[in-house]
């Protein structure tokens, strides 16, 4: 599909104490595409994402961003490059309104005073750019929003800062059918707007509905990274559960773990 990946990881290792969580992981993320990151519980998805976001340092391997090798030591470094992560718990303040949440920690000011008008304009533009029409007023408190609307606000917060890579950790896990469809639509729209989107999900229907590529982790190793159109549901399930499926996947996974 598109030529060069915007984010490229090679040979990533990560251990917590004696436990090695990631083994020699390679991972590519392309702009304008949704890359689904799948894997069973404990496969290392969250660790990989936290390493990308600068929360944990890698033990070894290369982190390439826009064709340059980079060192990411903190979430601020990642944010400065344009990598934003939307965690499962969303990290929103219920007692603040939508605009305040979107700008939290990075408020626009005029002198000492908050520049509410500018922030409101920018927030409205961002939501409009994502074709979000479900919120009644951007000045309503987050506590009054539904789960899907909260997810929308969290995603809008991530794209507000001209980010290039947006990583979503199970954005639909807690949502009903209608809201899931809405969030997936939004995920697709982000990629269509040219962003590189990483979607962590356990739900194969979601993965096949929106992703362009699928990366499957198995026990800390990258089993395969394939185009969604080239594989079937059952092949991905096999990659997740056993690390290989036909010619795809890890060569000796059975021997290595047995």
């Amino acid at each position: 599909m598109t030529a060069t990946p915007i984010l490229r990881l090679r040979g990533i290792d990560k251990s917590f104490g004696a436990v090695q969580v990631l083994h020699d992981v390679s991972f590519d993320v392309h702009p304008g595409e949704v890359t689904a990151l799948v894997g069973d519980n404990g496969a290392g998805k969250s660790t990989l994402v936290k390493c990308i976001g600068g929360i944990h340092p890698f033990d070894g391997g290369e982190y390439w961003f826009e064709n340059e090798q980079v060192q990411v030591h903190s979430p601020r470094d990642a944010a400065a490059m344009g990598v934003e992560i939307v965690y499962q718990d969303l990290a929103l303040c219920d007692n603040l309104d939508i605009v305040q949440n979107m700008f939290l920690g990075r408020e626009k000011r005029r002198g000492l005073v908050l520049d509410d008008a500018t922030m409101e304009e920018m927030a409205a533009q961002t939501l409009e750019g994502l074709s979000v029409r479900t919120v009644k007023s951007i000045r309503q408190q987050v506590s009054s929003l539904s789960g899907g609307q909260r997810q929308t606000v969290a995603i809008a917060k991530a794209v507000l800062w001209n980010s290039k890579v947006v990583i979503l950790d199970e954005p639909t896990a807690a949502l009903g059918v209608a809201q899931t469809a809405q969030v997936l639509e939004l995920v697709r729209r982000l990629a269509d707007n040219g962003l590189a989107v990483v979607l962590i999900s356990h739900n194969m229907n979601d993965v096949f509905a929106v992703s362009d590529r699928i990366a499957a982790l198995y026990l800390g190793r990258m089993a395969a990274q394939v185009s969604t159109s080239d594989v079937t549901h059952s092949q991905i399930v096999e990659l997740i559960t056993s690390g290989r499926s036909g010619d795809l996947g890890l060569a000796h996974s059975n021997g290595a773990t047995a």
Binding site: L90, A91, L92, C93, D94, G105
Partner: peptide, 10 residues
């Protein structure tokens, strides 16, 4: 409102 969210927001 949410100390953890505030911490993550820097």
């Amino acid at each position: 409102g949410n100390a953890e969210a505030a911490r993550r927001a820097g």
